[in-house]
Design a protein around this nucleic acid. Structure first.
Lengths: 239, 239
DNA sequence: TCGAGCCTTTGCGGTAGCGCAAAGAACGGC
DNA sequence: GCCGTTCTTTGCGCTACCGCAAAGGCTCGA
C-alpha cells in the first residue's frame, strides 16, 4: 500500500521526472522510509548534510534562524517536494532547519546513495538543476518584493504564493491547506505578527479573506491580486 | 593569447572544475567570444534564454526590475563567473537583466551546445548543481538579512560581501574593485541612496571606510564586521 | 467542565528611515 | 578650461511600521 503510494509520489516528483519505471523501482529500493510527528525536526541548521528526503505525506517547514534568535521561513514543502537539497549540492551543512508541521512520511536516501543515483541517471542531475534554478528564481522574486514593496503588498504576495502552492478549494473560497499562524505569515513576509493581524483584520472587513486561528481562506482572489500588484499608490507624481 | 587566457579562465571556472584538459579544449572549441562595452546589455529581463556566458575579462551586473521601474541588484559577476544560468536550468526567459559595467570579454555557448556538453560530462552537471546551490543559499542569507536587520547592518553586510568577492588590497585598505555608486549599494541593501550616503558619511567620520565618487575602500574591516553582526542594540531587555 | 496555554486583536506612542529639495563636487567631453 | 551631466551630501518633515502592553478567544488536555 505504502509502496504503491511512494512509487506514485516518486514518479511525480520534480527530481525524478522522466525516469524509467524500472530505474525508479531501483531508486526506491535503496531508499528508506521515515515518519515524523508534527513538530519534530528533520534537519537542524548547521547539522551535517547527510541525507535527502522526498515528502510522501504531510508538510514541512524550512526556516533559518539568526544568531540572536530571529527566524524567517524559507518555504513550506508538501508531498512530492524535496527536502535537503544541500545534500545534492555538496554543501557540508544544512543552511536552515526543517520541521514537520503535520505528521509526515518521508522517503529518504543517504548522501552516498543520492550521489550514486545521480551519477547513473543524467536526467536526475538535470532535474536537480531545474529544481534549484526554480528555487533560486523564487528567492530572487522574494528579495525583490521585500526590497521594493510595502508590507501590505508583501503579505498579499505571500498569501497568493501559498494559495498557489497549497490552496484547497472550499465552499467559502481557497483555503491554505495547513495551519498558518499570523506569526508564520510575518516570518514569510518580513514583518511582525501585529502588522499581519491588523492587515488581515482589514481585509476580512472588506470581505477579501476569511480567517480563523491558524487558518486563512481567500474569498476574493482578484482583490488580493490587485493589492499585491498595486503600483505604490503613495507616489503622487505618477501619470 | 586570448586563447590561452580563455582556457585558463575556463579551467578555473566553477562550472568546469575537474574537467580534463582535452575535454576543456573541445568545450572551448564550440564556444564563441563576444565583447561588450561598459553599459551594454547582455541579456534583457524576459528575453528568451538562448545562451550562457563565462566572464573572461571585465565585470557584469545582474538586476531585476519591477513593472513600475524599481530596480534591485541581484549580484555582480567577475572573471570566471557564469552569466545566464537560466539557460542551464531550462527556464524559458531570463529572470533579470545583465549589463556590462566594465568593458568585458565573454565566452559563450548556445543553449543547445551547453545542453550537449552537460549530457556528455556528468561532472559539469554536478558543478552546475553546486553552483546553483551556492547561489540559492546566498539568496536565503540575503533574504534573512533583509527581513531581520536594520539598514546599517544590511549595508555593512553588503559591503563585506563585495570586498570578499571583489576586494583589492591597497595601501589605504581593501578597495572594491569596480565603480559602485551609492545608488548601487542601496539597490543591493534594500534601501535608498540617501540612507546609504548618510551611513557612509558617518562611517567615514569614524575612519571605518574611505570613499569617493563610485568608489568604496574599507579601512577597518573589523569595525565593519562588528557593525554587521551587532545584536540589534535597540532591544533594551537583553542579557 | 474547567483551566492553562497559545493565538489573536487592538490601542497607543515612538522612531527608523523614506521622500523631497536643493546645493555642492567630481568627472568627462569638447 | 569650460560646461553639462552625473553623483553625492545634507537638512527637514513625515509616515509606515514597529514595539509594547493588555485584553480577549480558541483549543485541548485533564
Amino acid at each position: 500500500m505504502e509502496y504503491q503510494t511512494d512509487l506514485i509520489i516518486l514518479e511525480r516528483t520534480e527530481l525524478f521526472r522522466g525516469v524509467a519505471a524500472q530505474a525508479l523501482r531501483e531508486i526506491h529500493a535503496v531508499s528508506y522510509r521515515k515518519r515524523f510527528s508534527a513538530g519534530e525536526v528533520i534537519f537542524r541548521q548547521d547539522d551535517a548534510a547527510a541525507s535527502l528526503y522526498v515528502v510522501s505525506v504531510g508538510r514541512l517547514r524550512a526556516t533559518q534562524t539568526t544568531p540572536d534568535g530571529q527566524q524567517i521561513i524559507i518555504r513550506y514543502l508538501g508531498p512530492g517536494e524535496v527536502a535537503g537539497y544541500t545534500t545534492l549540492s555538496g554543501a557540508a551543512t544544512h543552511p536552515g532547519t526543517i520541521t514537520a508541521i503535520d505528521d509526515s512520511h518521508l522517503i529518504g536516501w543517504s548522501a552516498a546513495a543520492i550521489k550514486q543515483i545521480m551519477g547513473e541517471h543524467a536526467a536526475i542531475a538535470m532535474n536537480a538543476i531545474m529544481l534549484l534554478g526554480a528555487r533560486y528564481r523564487e528567492m530572487q522574486l522574494r528579495l525583490r518584493e521585500l526590497s521594493t514593496e510595502r508590507v501590505e503588498q508583501r503579505i498579499a504576495h505571500t498569501i497568493l504564493r501559498l494559495t498557489a502552492q497549497a490552496g484547497r478549494r472550499t465552499a467559502r473560497g481557497i483555503e491554505i491547506a495547513f495551519p498558518l499562524s499570523r506569526q508564520d505569515l510575518a516570518e514569510m513576509s518580513g514583518t511582525t505578527l501585529h502588522t499581519v493581524s491588523r492587515t488581515l483584520s482589514a481585509w476580512e472587513e472588506e470581505g477579501i479573506v476569511a480567517c480563523g486561528r491558524r487558518r486563512v481562506i481567500v474569498t476574493r482572489l482578484d482583490a488580493l491580486t490587485v493589492i499585491a500588484s498595486a503600483t505604490s499608490s503613495l507616489s503622487p507624481n505618477r501619470p
